[in-house]
Design a protein around this nucleic acid. Sequence first.
DNA 1: CTTTGCACCTGTTGGC
DNA 2: TGCCAACAGGTGCAAA
Length: 271
Amino acid sequence: MPELPEVETTRRGIESALLGRRVLDVIVRDRRLRWPVEPGFERRVRGEAALAVERRAKYLLLRFPAGTAIVHLGMSGSLRVLGAGTPPLIHDHWDLVLEGGQVLRFHDPRRFGSLHWTSADPALHPLLQDLGPEPLSTAFDGEHLFRASRRRRVAIKLLIMNSHIVVGVGNIYASEALFRARLRPTRAAQRLSRAQAAALAQAIREVLAEAIAIGGTTLRDYVNADGVPGYFRQQLFVYERGGAPCRVCGTAIRQVTQGQRSTYYCPSCQD
DNA sequence: CTTTGCACCTGTTGGC
DNA sequence: TGCCAACAGGTGCAAA
């Protein structure tokens, strides 16, 4: 479910509940996430108080004095801050019970999410070490995208969803950014001009920043830490709009499959 | 090396 | 009403 804007919205929502508060208890009800939760996880975190809540790509990093919990929400995961004593429901797989009467609760029906612990620099963790730049950092710009697209035959949509090139661009925002940049998702990456790469990099930055500003996109079940959906769905130009009229020119939006995922574009606006 | 497709898992939706 | 196929905000990994 969550792409970068939803993960960033979650980060902002859980930060104040965690910072400086001791973790009184760690409850893992189901260890069978994408990777099994390490047996020692509970005892590493119990008694620690978070120093920082950060995000790298779609990973949330809960930094404690002794190490870092690395959390991924997968396709259907969410993190919420609830009152301690709120009874867990189905698919509520783990809790951090916090000093002061609140609990951070992880809910994930599909269990594609994950939870790791590292006592080393999380940037060196195998899941993080080969990631590309953050799209909202200065390391990501048109020149980066242009260089990365040279001699690549893959479709440009697949390229921008490749986390080695740039992180955080998922299925919704890939289609949306390509619409804004007026580029066909199916075009070979190597056929982008320098100017088109610059336009696409800019479109990616804008669409992600705008989505963060209104709390991300809720399609089905995404909610932020307070249980509130994101409202970016109303700003979508093409995603999940196959057959509907383009909001710019009225042409029917097309839906195609790329890399076993749905892609949406306007055949008139996008070349 | 790049590219492609599968796998993991549960829930919802739409057609017959 | 029931059944079954298709599809869903991700991504590591194996195979081509």
